[in-house]
Design a binder for these strands. Sequence first.
DNA 1: GGCCACTGCTGAAACGATTCATACCTCCCT
DNA 2: AGGGAGGTATGAATCGTTTCAGCAGTGGCC
Lengths: 337, 337
Amino acid sequence: MSVSVRNVADKAGVSVGTVSNVLNRPEKVAKATVERVTAAIAELGFVRNDAARQLRAGRSRSIGLSVLDIGNPFFTDVARGAEDRARDAGLSVLLANSDEDAAREDEHLDLFAEQRVFGILLTPVGARPERLESLRRQGTPTVLVDRQTDSSDFSSVAVDDVAGGYMAVKHLLDIGRRRIVFVGGPARIRQVADRLEGAQKAVAEVSDATLDVVLEDSLSVLRGRAAGERLCARPASNRPDAVFAANDLLAMGLLQAFAMLGSIRVPDDVALIGYDDIDFTRASVVPLSSVRQPSHEIGHTAVDLLLRENAEGEDFTHEQFVFQPELVVRESTSDGS
Amino acid sequence: MSVSVRNVADKAGVSVGTVSNVLNRPEKVAKATVERVTAAIAELGFVRNDAARQLRAGRSRSIGLSVLDIGNPFFTDVARGAEDRARDAGLSVLLANSDEDAAREDEHLDLFAEQRVFGILLTPVGARPERLESLRRQGTPTVLVDRQTDSSDFSSVAVDDVAGGYMAVKHLLDIGRRRIVFVGGPARIRQVADRLEGAQKAVAEVSDATLDVVLEDSLSVLRGRAAGERLCARPASNRPDAVFAANDLLAMGLLQAFAMLGSIRVPDDVALIGYDDIDFTRASVVPLSSVRQPSHEIGHTAVDLLLRENAEGEDFTHEQFVFQPELVVRESTSDGS
DNA sequence: GGCCACTGCTGAAACGATTCATACCTCCCT
DNA sequence: AGGGAGGTATGAATCGTTTCAGCAGTGGCC
């Protein structure tokens, strides 16, 4: 059926070992032989069988990456960062989308295990300590992405979301807003919980400020729009003067609702700030203030940690990277003065 | 090192063949035996080695999907559609991003070949007949996605982009615009060329209408912004009264530029229409008119074709699916009356 | 009793690349 | 001449799963 090293070897009049050497350490093989083998490979259209290679090697040369939402540009940026770094190291990235669904995440992790991946980058759905424990036992190097951990069993690359939440709401307070609403996703998502915590911290520092919490069941444009419609439906007296959305997708949805229903002007009536600073925010109805995360670098760093863990073996101490977010102020929170 | 069927077999007191049967056709094995083996598997923490499985089977149970731009929500939607369908069939999807770069695409295709993937879904960068030819020779079932083909060697799933381009510009003409600019990406991308062709067809039907073509080197928000800035820099007399952008990312960028520089109002001065109808367009400065493609369904159908080609073997006749796009009118092309 | 059918299980062979101990040359040095 | 070193090439063993021909045991039927 398929052309194998055996066929190449016969054609070139050498042994299979030599073909393998040409493939993997050509410097060990005489020049003339390399040429003969190379010619045979080309002529027969030989393509290495990765399964056989992996079987022998014991592990694959792919990194598994499971993200929460592939429709969120933040995660695709992280994926890009990871892929760039992986390429340099001769590895490839298997991108899997859990869609914030634990069952789906499990499926993907099982698949990664069966594939004996080189390592796993995981943005876990919720805490799921039992899953992490089983990953640890399994021995595949795993880096938690966009999630801090106090466990010394895993490396992690995260952004300080508490600081990000704080900085967003502090900014709203600084421009004089006091009745603030936090629009988030399911509390089981750690990013949401942390950003909320930061928001609460900022509010606590100003005596007459209040924070109202609205939780949607996912962090999508659609859910943001729904939340926005509900806010618009409130009597004007009961409306916030600022909204902090847990990510830009929600913020875009809120903006859509405000713009469509026309009853709330941004930033005059309500100041709005999102999170992630995705590319689209600059083109939204009102350019959106946001909290920027170094997404590309997160992906980079995560792969670096994986590579180091792999190189150093047993005596590798797991590292916890925490990046600082950055406030990006645009029109949606301009103070109008 | 790793636990194998051998170990499980020993533990359960059966042969390796039986363990394999429990894994793959439990109905052929006596109930008590199944239980014993299952228990042994659980106790030892046995995880199937996919490489060995693949080696034996001759091919993997993954579908390779290469997309042009993973940052474009249109493609992630296609990917989602493909993954949903693949899951049902017990397959998984390897998502690869070519970033409109032929070299990268080649790397991914080579990788797919080495992995002996079940099939390939490809949104090719440009025409690249030689690449397609080598895929065909290689024998891996391949479906061209978002690209029509007249070759009977491949199935394809596409949207009629000429019709889409026609319908976008026809709409601009219908609301009374005459000096139209097409902002596209590199002409080697077939989608761009087809949409332009449709646009030209529509313009040709109206005697006093003109079509100006501006080509950027990628279909991104950033490039759209650059194009927008250049349009703003033109003297008012030389400006178009409508712009058709080859995709929504470009359109969003144009909108950003118009809004930031403030010298062009949408739709009053310039009507704007995009392509793809991604989720974000509804939340843009001015809700964006667009041409919708059934992205999810495209992914679905592509996988279906792959499965059928696989099931029917030699006597499978390659099919060319062509979906019709749909015009979505929003504020950015309202005629102001 | 002899034969057949059926169920349940066995274990060797096969998939294809890589590794490694071994062997063969040449050349050079003593 | 003998021995060592260095450069090349060999091919059997190995990785872990699946497949399949075949064996044993049981029960039914004539």
